[in-house]
């Protein structure tokens, strides 16, 4: 075990890790940030997406030691400073973009990265941008609506 340090949600943190410790495990078990979920073991489902230095990554497919010193943002860091829901989070609630909530942290993080890179995406761009996040509850309809709404666009679909 070695102490691995990084910045998570703006705070300097450190926790014990082995070589094989995944970033997802470092966050969940090392730091108690259990909002980041693990839904598969093949880097497909996207429930574990966090941002590392501003880029969306699947935290189950990154070793904690490989991102030592990096700045990591998780779902716990997405609310406004006053604790209210951020724009994307609020859009997910307003448009019923979540049901069981398990894929939701990854969806929000991927959506945030998508909108940062493309503030006014088309429906097709949203769908393509979320292809690495599997949701089993919503059929994606309201997730896509939520992301479009969060971009400030009127959503055509009812």
């Amino acid at each position: 075990m070695t102490k691995v340090s990084m910045t998570v949600n703006g705070k300097a943190v450190s926790a014990e890790a082995e070589g094989r410790t995944l970033l997802s495990a470092y966050l969940r078990e090392g730091l108690g940030l259990t909002g980041t979920h693990v839904g598969c073991d093949t880097s497909q489902c996207g429930a574990c997406v966090v941002h590392v230095d501003g880029k969306a990554v699947k935290s189950c497919t990154v070793f904690a030691m490989d991102v030592a010193g990096a700045s990591v943002t998780t779902i716990e860091g997405m609310a406004n400073p006053d604790g209210s829901l951020g724009v994307i989070q609020q859009a997910f609630q307003d448009h019923h973009g979540l049901q069981c909530g398990f894929c939701t942290p990854g969806m929000v993080m991927s959506s945030a990265a998508l909108l940062a890179a493309n503030p006014h995406p088309t429906e097709a761009e949203v769908r393509h941008g979320l292809e690495g996040n599997i949701c089993r509850c919503t059929g994606y309809h309201n997730i896509v609506k939520a992301v479009l709404a969060a971009s400030g666009q009127t959503v055509a679909a009812e």
């Binding site: 940030l33 909002g35 829901l85 909530g101």
Partner: peptide, 19 residues
Amino acid sequence: SKRREDVRFLTGKGVYTDD
């Protein structure tokens, strides 16, 4: 009505068994 449970799920504060 908007779902009240969403707030905890959207902020990473849901508590699933493995959490």
